[in-house]
Design a protein around this nucleic acid. Structure first.
Lengths: 148, 148
DNA sequence: CTCCGTGCAAAAGGTTTGCACTGGT
DNA sequence: ACCAGTGCAAACCTTTTGCACGGAG
């Protein structure tokens, strides 16, 4: 990400915090900056390490907690919208998923028109692509009710 | 999944095992059957629990190991092709991912034509859909080399 | 009969929680 | 000054590993 874009995103973050009355702490700013500076989808632990040279006494706990905060603010995203644990699927033919961003429920979608999406190129950035799947992010009926 | 389809899949599994010289054990069959019977993308632990009433002495260890075996055989899939830990992303605008099935590396794809895919309906199975992302599964350049 | 798969127990990670203290508002 | 945020340590949960035994080929 470009330096200007990072600066803009940090600014946006501070604005949101002020607006919501959340303290803008050094830790939060440094952690967010560390995420914005990389594009390799780091884990909380990788962020912790990346931040060590700037604030050596910053704790893992804070990284984990800050991640949650940043997610709630919508400033970052979880890449794979599941919780922490690995999930398996007995369906091996192409299909797609509807994921609830609030409770992480996953529902299958079978939709032929989605399946037709052409594999763009045989090779994409050097990858050999075998298959694809579309993930829709949203709010499930149960969580819609709870929100009210 | 329909009972006939489950039976067919179990049969297919046994064929693959025989072909590869892998023992067809009761545990493997029961675990696979448990996965096929549900469509809620269970974790290894949920499978462990589901299987308790059929083989109470079956251990968690076996479930974890069997999952890996079934994945290698291509009989089941990992839903979100990452490893176990949660990953984060500083990019919040729509973009897509290329995931290596072997090392779980994740690379971003920015492709406007993919972004244009229309959100099928405002509501999909009662979900309020906010966004989507396409995941391509394949083999990254590094892992292609290693294979040879 | 041989070897791989399994079970148990223990280790290794990764993530969360409780409590006292610090720092932003 | 007040209260949310932080750090530390310990708890917790999930996953992996080492070793001896048992069952499938």
């Amino acid at each position: 990400m470009q330096p200007e874009e990072i600066a803009a995103r940090l600014q946006e973050f501070e604005d949101i915090c002020r607006q919501k009355g959340l303290p803008v702490t050094t830790q939060r700013r440094v952690i967010l900056e560390a995420i914005l500076q990389r594009d390799d989808h780091p884990t909380a632990d990788q962020i912790y390490e990346a931040v060590q040279d700037r604030i050596p006494q910053l704790s893992r706990t804070t990284v984990y907690r800050t991640m949650e905060t940043l997610l709630e603010l919508g400033v970052i995203r979880r890449v794979h919208l599941t919780g922490a644990t690995g999930r398996f699927d007995g369906k091996i033919r192409r299909h797609h998923h509807l994921v609830c961003m609030h409770c992480n429920k996953i529902i299958d979608i079978d939709d032929e028109s989605l399946d037709q999406l052409p594999l763009p190129k045989r090779k994409l950035q050097g990858f050999e692509v075998d298959d694809f799947s579309v993930q829709f992010a949203g709010t499930c009926p149960d969580c819609q009710k709870k929100r009210k």
